[in-house]
């Protein structure tokens, strides 16, 4: 198929950036979206132009590196799908596709479609863990975990840290990412001792990193390729209220 692309090009963090049009032909419907960009880049290099920079790695929907705003939707039109798993059979010959980086205050653009998401790592550093130094663990069966809790914890822990939630949020909030981790650890008995310090620390790091506040718009969950539900935000708010009251 033949496509018209309009891609955000920005040489570096300090540059202004702009949308640049490209035309690409001969794309197979079995190609993935990123493979379509590979073909474009091969073409650009052959013409002596700078290829489009974009983050990607595993290309199987689990590493969370790929991060494209496609026609205004984080990871494109298909539900529960990362950009790397989106295939060109979703498009038709002659389509025009807009491709932009994540847009959020806490994710500054590095180059073209690449953004800096280290603010997510800083949120984890502020409490997104269970303190269990190597060697201190009791037998794995010492603490049974009710299956529904373990399953719910897993569903929250399935977050891949891609940042689609932030990009989709009108406030640029990192709430869903943060709440997924708070829910995962808070649902496990192992996570109880640090439950309150965790949520206070993570929320403080979130706000400091420049993420916006949450107004329960729900765009985050709709854009999430791993379908993390909004219920985790309710859990975070409840934990936060309890923790803040205790701390006060």
């Amino acid at each position: 198929m033949k496509l018209r692309l309009r891609i955000w090009r920005q040489a570096g963090a300090e540059d202004k950036g702009k949308m640049v049009p490209y035309v690409i032909d001969g794309i197979s419907e079995d190609a993935s979206f990123l493979e379509m960009l590979d073909v474009l880049n091969e073409q650009l290099i052959a013409e002596g132009e700078d290829p489009v920079a974009f983050d990607h790695d595993c290309r199987e929907g689990i590493c969370g590196a790929c991060s494209l705003m496609i026609d205004g939707q984080a990871h494109g039109p298909q539900g529960a799908t990362t950009t790397c798993q989106l295939h060109m059979r979703q498009y038709s010959d002659g389509d025009t596709i807009d491709i932009e980086p994540w847009r959020a205050g806490a994710f500054p653009v590095v180059k073209d479609l690449v953004v800096d998401r280290s603010s997510f790592d800083r949120i984890i550093q502020a409490g997104g863990y269970i303190s269990a130094p190597t060697g201190t663990a009791p037998d794995a069966h010492a603490v049974p975990v009710p299956k529904p809790d373990a399953d719910a914890a897993f569903s929250a822990a399935a977050c891949i840290g891609c940042g689609a939630c932030v990009a989709a949020c009108p406030n640029g909030s990192g709430m869903l990412f943060m709440a997924a981790k708070v829910a995962h650890l808070g649902l496990m008995p192992q996570g109880q001792p640090e439950r309150h310090t965790r949520v206070l620390g993570m929320v403080a790091a979130h706000d400091e990193a420049g993420f916006g506040g949450c107004t329960n718009t729900g765009e985050c969950s709709a854009a999430c390729p791993k379908e993390i539900g909004l219920d985790v935000i309710g859990r975070l708010n409840a934990d936060f209220r309890k923790a803040a009251t205790r701390a006060a």
Partner: peptide, 22 residues
């Protein structure tokens, strides 16, 4: 065997049976 103990202590959400065991 120590690896499993360690990972469970960190909160890794392994699949479990209805009785709560792994």
């Amino acid at each position: 065997t120590e690896i499993i103990d360690q990972c469970v202590a960190q909160g890794v959400p392994f699949a479990r049976e209805y009785g709560g065991l792994l």
